[in-house]
Amino acid sequence: MKSTFTLGLAAAAALAAACATEPEPAPLQFAAEAPAPVASVDPRVKFKDGERYLRDLSANLNIPREEICKELSRYDCMTDAFRIVLGGVEAPNLLVNEPIEDAALTSPIAVDRLALHVCTNRVRMDKETPAEAVLFKAGAFGRDGRAKGPELAWLNSTADAIYGSVLLRSPSEREVQNLAAYYAQVAEGRAANNPDVAADWVTLSCFAVASSLEAVFY
């Protein structure tokens, strides 16, 4: 299975491209590649579909299913907005009796949108209620908040929380290193100890992991 960071890198690149007025960011310094895993002789991974994807994130990020993702703050992302492209069916009205055989062109866009919704929500809730924070916890810049950049322990524990919540496992050393290295790019052009930078890093790191192949397929 491909590294979870593949899509994260793509997300970062896309985000960087969107900020056209910003200077070109410095290349990331990622940890050395691990040996390629043995390829499956007959891969059968399946798309989780939008409902199961949101149920998982709902349980693991502690956000009620009915609140986790709403378009225009009103329409459920799966039920009302992206049901068919996310592998759902709607037989009685749309006559879609079975999930579409192949992912639609818009399916990855919809998955990304769900992931971004969920991660943005979770970090917003963490900021509003720090005592119940799941991902974005206090202590980024030391006990007194005066450090010039994020504390390594905080980066590591946040990476661990993201992987544990989204993928139900601990990250590898390489995965932690890669997320930590990503902080510098998020901070590009801003002070590294800006709380907004830390919040953005948590949101985007969450997005990178939640939109990874490992999170979307099973």
Partner: peptide, 15 residues
């Protein structure tokens, strides 16, 4: 084990 939870319960097992 994880797949059975996903296919039949509709969500992953807890960590």
């Amino acid at each position: 084990f994880r797949k059975v939870h996903m296919d039949f319960c509709g969500s992953s097992p807890t960590r």
